[in-house]
Design a protein around this nucleic acid. Structure first.
Lengths: 233, 233
DNA sequence: AAAGTTAATATGTACGTACATATTATTTCT
DNA sequence: AGAAATAATATGTACGTACATATTAACTTT
């Protein structure tokens, strides 16, 4: 049947995926063990292993030692979102990027930021708001808090020229982070900045990054109406 | 320095990531070649290769044959979103899932669906709207079009009992899909169904799936206010 | 029969070797 | 000097073997 004499892991990957897609192997079904597949497809077990491992990480297969490999009973779509620096996202669309610092103030954080980052209310922080534009039109409104204690060098950064978004990516160490995607109605101020109407529905991205247990920065990114984030499966 | 005698690929992965995080290796820097790293860390090249390959797929490294491996100049955060069947998402939160079919009608599609799926205006399609509830409260409003030609078995499915969302995942073959995330103001009807106010900002997920070049289904999923999609980096 | 112990087994991974492939560096030819 | 051919090189992958590990199945003991 499948007598293709290619024996690279990608061809194994594709062949197995084909059998899943065509329901030759249905959700919940146990599939042949690695050695059997290797024999059938004429390649080494390591090659089959690589292919099946990849498929498992993509959410198509469930694998357990001794128990074997089966087609995922509830295929989980695993959307991969690339979240580049805003400048690159805009330039990637072929638009002209511009950026304006709205204000920058060194002060103690409000309660919700303390909770987010796990810092005390008397922490030394930098509060920055800025606007990112695409082809001259408001694209994204950034409201960010940065821990000065964790990233003292931020004070020397020229935030008129480089956005905090980009500076942090290039200079701040981090180990982990959270992202939340949601929707929010524009407040009057936000609407004014983004040149839309109060109450307009905006795509919201909230990000917090940490180095070990030290909170580095917490940002609220509000996108202008019409923004859509895409992912292929 | 790093004289840990562990020689599994994960420890190599972690060690390299540590050097990136601590800026020992900065964005744009070239890192030692595989053989050198293998020697330094006391393991086989294959082990280093596995670790670096993983890091590259996570967006931390850029690798090119002959040119070598360097730290990504513009680290792209690669958020992985798990998008399970709605029922499982709700149950995963420890809430009780319920589902109600609002209406189901077999008819020809409107222009925007034709454009989405690449089907003709006289196609045989099923239009389904339904509501998914968590702990009795409206959670997500689903507005879906399914191609009957591509998935005739859908006509026999009891969509009062199983949601189209879940039925399709279990029974429809597919090869690829698109997801768009955005935000939308609730229309009067949507607000009524989701028991919120017209104009409320709602998180919107638009999905289209295909089998090769044949459009299978296109869905518009509107989430109740307060919904947030999370991802850890 | 229930509990605890041991054997069997499929996947997980490490290693060394060999060769493939893409890309850069070098050399040769015009 | 510029173009074309050639060599050098780092990553990419395949393979066979060996052993690790998690988990199930079988068996023994109480």
């Amino acid at each position: 049947m499948n007598s293709q004499q290619q024996k690279n892991w990608q061809s194994v990957h594709d062949e197995v995926l084909r059998r899943i897609h065509t329901r030759e192997w249905k959700p919940g079904d146990q599939i042949p063990k690695e050695v059997e597949l290797a024999e059938e497809l004429g390649c080494a077990r390591a090659t089959v292993n690589r292919a099946l491992r990849e498929l498992a990480s993509e959410g198509f297969l469930d694998r357990r030692r001794k128990a074997g490999t089966r087609v995922a009973a509830h295929p989980v779509r695993r959307a991969k979102l690339d979240i580049p620096v805003i400048r690159l996202e805009i330039e990637g669309r072929g638009q002209k990027y511009a950026y304006g610092l709205l204000f920058s103030e060194r002060r103690t954080p409000p309660p919700e930021i303390c909770a987010n980052l796990g810092v005390t209310a008397d922490s030394d922080m930098l509060h920055i708001t800025s606007l990112h534009l695409a082809d001259g039109k408001p694209f994204m409104f950034e409201d960010r808090w940065v821990s000065v204690a964790a990233t003292p060098a931020i004070l020397k950064a020229d935030l008129e020229k480089i956005s905090a978004n980009e500076w942090l990516v290039l200079h701040a160490p981090y180990t982990r982070g959270d992202i939340y995607f949601s929707a929010a109605n524009a407040t009057e101020i936000e609407a004014k900045v983004l040149r839309t109407d109060p109450g307009a529905s905006l795509f919201l991205m909230e990000r917090t990054t940490w180095e070990d247990t030290t909170g580095i920065t917490s940002a609220r990114l509000l996108f202008a109406p019409g923004y859509r984030k895409h992912s292929a499966i």
